[in-house]
């Protein structure tokens, strides 16, 4: 084989690849079709992708992953997706397992699984982790950085746009993160205690220096007993906490029974309000979006404990 022939072959290949690239750039003018499971994730994908992505969340902003059921149309939505983004860490239950296996066939991205295990909170001995990563805004940003790389890998031609928009989105996350840090630090030390029915706020507590106390364990199939009520009541009474909170995905009566017991024992404590845990507010309201939802939680906590 002569040197001449090799260079000729190379030039043909080069020409072909440039042509192919040109054709692709034209064919891929349409925005990237992304399907997400939760609305929090959809918020972030939109934040990074802007006009260049077409985002569809399977679970609307007010929908809790526990309540969500796959509908007929969701099959087509999943099928038509060029990228599927989900939370992982068992938030989506069996659907998460299916999505994991779908990775063989089409691009899927699990935000939680992309994070280093050391940054996650373990909940059991079998390597399961708490899925509520979006309540630690720095961690959420790290998850976003991995997502950004994934989006760029899929659409290199939009890389600069993605990077610019991501920088702005991450800046908002950083700003809110700093505000939460500052606001929580401004609370009296004995009030930095978040009492809820079952803890969705472990990451929040770890990141912003609040102790988190729940009536029952992590499993939603579990129940609490009278001794657990007594334990939480003693903590609340001994710390002089001003308020406790309802979680949006747990029946309010669990916390209400704690309040009633405290009141009857002569240690009245206020109900601080409702915190969003696994879902957000209705679409079209500030709480229906990620930042609004986090701010609502922060505001509720501050109002109640200050």
């Amino acid at each position: 084989m002569t040197k001449n022939r090799v260079s000729r072959l190379l030039s043909v290949l080069l020409a072909l690849t440039s042509l192919w690239g040109f054709a692709c750039a034209h064919a891929e003018q349409a925005p990237l079709r992304v399907v997400t499971t939760t609305a929090m994730i959809a918020d972030m994908v939109t934040g990074i992708g802007g006009e260049r992505v077409e985002v569809r969340a399977l679970m609307g902003s007010g929908v809790d992953p526990h309540v969500y059921r796959v509908s007929f149309g969701d099959i087509q939505r999943l099928n038509g997706a060029e990228l599927i983004v989900y939370n992982g860490l068992h938030l989506e239950g069996r659907m998460g397992q299916v999505l994991e296996r779908m990775a063989r066939k089409r691009p899927v991205h699990a935000l939680g699984e992309a994070l280093p295990a050391a940054r996650l909170i373990a909940v059991d001995d079998a390597g399961a982790h708490d899925p509520h990563i979006w309540f630690d805004l720095r961690l959420w940003r790290e998850a976003g950085e991995a997502l950004l790389e994934r989006l760029i890998a899929l659409r290199p031609e939009d890389a600069s746009l993605f990077r610019t928009r991501a920088a702005a989105y991450f800046a908002r996350l950083d700003a809110l993160d700093a505000r939460i840090r500052q606001d929580i630090a401004s609370l009296p030390e004995n009030q930095r205690l978040l009492v809820t029915a079952h803890d969705a706020f472990a990451y929040f507590g770890r990141a912003y220096g609040m102790e988190v106390v729940g009536l029952q364990g992590i499993s939603t199939a579990s129940e609490f007993g009278l001794a657990d009520l007594r334990r939480v009541r003693q903590i609340v009474a001994s710390r002089g906490v001003k308020a406790v909170f309802i979680e949006s995905s747990v029946p309010p009566r669990f916390i209400e029974s704690l309040l009633a017991g405290l009141e009857s024992a002569g240690q009245p404590v206020r109900l601080g309000g409702e915190l969003f845990s696994d879902s957000m507010g209705p679409a079209g309201t500030p709480e229906g979006q990620y930042f609004g939802m986090v701010e609502h939680n922060l505001h509720t906590i501050l109002e109640a404990l200050q």
Partner: peptide
Amino acid sequence: TWLQRQPLANQAGLDKFLFGQAASLT
């Protein structure tokens, strides 16, 4: 499945909303 496409108020816990636990009696 129909509700989850509607922009209605927070639907969290709707399936378990009715189901209390014995220790939460007041």
